[in-house]
Design a protein around this nucleic acid. Structure first.
Lengths: 136, 136
DNA sequence: ATTAAAATTGTATTATTGTATCATTGAATA
DNA sequence: TATTCAATGATACAATAATACAATTTTAAT
């Protein structure tokens, strides 16, 4: 059962359900989740995220209606498709824009300035580069 | 659920909302309320104080914007940080760094480069400025 | 191999909790 | 006295949680 490594921000302006939907969507678009992969049960993921399992179930149902996953009562939830190749690029771009929009909204809501955002991004990228090279 | 034991003076010059804000603030500063503690629901506290629940909700929202509590629709209201301005500032910073880490992780996983991230951030900030000024 | 009970998994419905918008009140002021 | 505006209240709404349910799989007895 795939470890999704999702992160919920309870203070975010984005509802929990939406956060789950978007992050699973992104995992599929990035290839971290592949067709056939089984997702955690609604109760398991809910426990991990410290959320009511109905919230996860709602997210799964939305993803199901989007055709991204297949939920089956009594069986579990599986990744359905990786999307059509021609739409893939557009969807990836849209996900990127949405991700950025929400990040900006939450960072600004926390009271940080654009300059501070730029600065922290550079700092963290620097750190990532270091840990990467250290692992080589 | 913490018993706040607040007292409202209806004859006071100070608005009810302000009285609630200040008293909860004091409970946090004095350590009577600790991070993670759940506050009464807006309706429960409103009943106790014999005021409209919107008044409590307003007070909660102010405390939220101050970074003292976290209000979550459907879940309740929780103390977010210890009252010392110093602690609040540190926790705000930590939240910002975590937010940014997760954003970077997801954006990079989607296959976008640091240059693309920088560019999109600037674009979206530009758009935000436009919609803001357009609303004036 | 069969089958029935138990466990697991998602679904449906209702209750709870905070949010948004507009209406009302009452005191300050022209 | 009339007007205006901040504070509060009323109402409808949106997000999440609680509870009971239905479908499927698993387990164990025969």
């Amino acid at each position: 059962m795939a470890n999704l490594n999702l992160h919920i921000d309870f203070r975010s302006e984005t509802p929990i359900t939406t956060q789950i939907v978007e992050q699973i969507q992104n995992r599929v678009l990035s290839g971290e989740l592949k067709p056939g992969d089984q997702l955690p049960t609604v109760r398991q993921l809910a426990t991990d995220l410290r959320v009511n399992f109905n919230t996860v179930a709602r997210a799964y149902r939305i993803l199901d209606s989007m055709g991204l996953i297949s939920t089956q009562q009594g069986r579990g939830t599986y990744i359905w498709s990786a999307g059509q190749a021609e739409n893939r690029e557009r969807e990836r771009r849209q996900a990127f824009e949405q991700l950025t929009r929400h990040y900006l909204r939450d960072a600004l809501a926390l009271g940080f300035s654009m300059d501070q955002i730029r600065a922290l991004l550079e700092t963290q990228i620097e750190q990532l580069n270091h840990t990467q090279t250290a692992e080589d």
